[in-house]
């Protein structure tokens, strides 16, 4: 084994890249859950986003359009979830599972003719001055645009939830939908919006895997990233800024085990590959979660 082959700066830089898909998906789910809806279909929406991203970017030759298509794909899938859970009042846990199973099949079907497609290169930003800084430059400032969009979204969601009136209404709907309804807020409408935002974010996260991290299409390529995103929302105690910490923690474990594999650690690859999942479980156990939104996962029906 040659541990000296692991460059800590490169490790930190790839950590930001590795955590971006989960960060995006988890951020969307955080908003959904703050609105009181538990969407377990993140994995399905992510993988559909990954497939849509490949399709749109190869057809148009533009990676940004690929991301837009992925967001649209995730959004449409989440719309199905919204109709089922908000209009037809189905069980959210079961519907979320159905969404994941459906998304896995749908993405496999959509992506099968794009198995050999190579998505267009997604350029890394070269920010003048900043990216030339020693140490900080390569770690923080030489990534592609989506990494920064992810970070900006975290700040935007934090600002929205804690500093705006609309965010307060959304949280009210999540804490107590009966009370919010009594105050005249459109519970179902607000939840539709939140669910679709979550779907678009999950789609973006999935596309980041298929367009930047891998970059190509393989069936089931998200490999549980959506479920880890769900776990990180719990870990973060439903707070956007803590979400960043959770995503980086997970990204760190992923990158580290990949580097250890490459360095030829004397542990079989399979056991190293398990580590992100085991780490997620450990994190869930060790860190007592914050308080979940009061109406999380409950069905709302305005009876009169």
């Amino acid at each position: 084994m040659d541990l000296s082959s692991i460059n800590p700066l490169l490790l930190l830089a790839s950590l930001m890249v590795a955590s971006t898909p989960i960060l995006l998906a988890a951020l969307g789910e955080l908003v959904v859950e703050r609105a009181g809806v538990l969407n377990l279909g993140v994995e399905g929406m992510m993988i559909t986003g990954a497939a849509c991203g490949i399709i749109f970017s190869t057809l148009t030759g533009n990676a940004w359009l690929g991301f837009a298509g992925a967001a649209l794909g995730g959004l449409m899938l989440s719309f199905l979830f919204a109709v089922l859970t908000q209009v037809l009042l189905s069980n959210q846990v079961a519907t979320g599972l159905a969404l994941t199973l459906f998304g896995l099949g749908l993405s496999a079907l959509l992506g099968q003719s794009f198995a050999d497609a190579r998505p267009p290169a997604f350029p890394k930003l070269d920010i003048p001055i900043l990216s030339d800084l020693p140490v900080l430059g390569p770690v923080l400032f030489r990534h592609d645009g989506m990494v920064y969009i992810g970070l900006l979204l975290v700040v935007a969601v934090w600002y929205f939830l804690s500093r705006t009136r609309a965010g307060l209404v959304l949280r009210a709907v999540g804490e107590n939908h009966e009370a919010a309804h009594a105050l005249g807020y459109r519970v179902v409408l607000i939840r539709f919006g939140a669910i679709m935002f979550g779907g678009a974010c999950a789609g973006l996260g999935g596309a980041y895997i298929s367009l930047v991290r891998v970059p190509q299409w393989t069936e089931g390529m998200t490999a549980g990233a959506g479920w880890i995103a769900l776990a990180i929302v719990v870990f973060a105690g439903w707070k956007p800024l803590r979400l960043l910490l959770g995503a980086y923690l997970f990204g760190g474990v992923t990158v580290l085990q990949l580097n250890l594999q490459a360095a030829g650690l004397a542990i079989p690859v399979e056991y190293l590959s398990m580590s992100p999942y085991v780490a997620t479980i450990l994190v869930l156990v060790i860190l007592a979660a914050g308080r979940a939104p009061g109406s999380l996962g409950k069905t709302f029906h305005a009876s009169r």
């Binding site: 159905a98 199973l101 998304g103 496999a108």
Partner: peptide, 11 residues
Amino acid sequence: AIQLFQGMLLF
């Protein structure tokens, strides 16, 4: 397509 079919059924 079969996988999709099974998912659709639950939906």
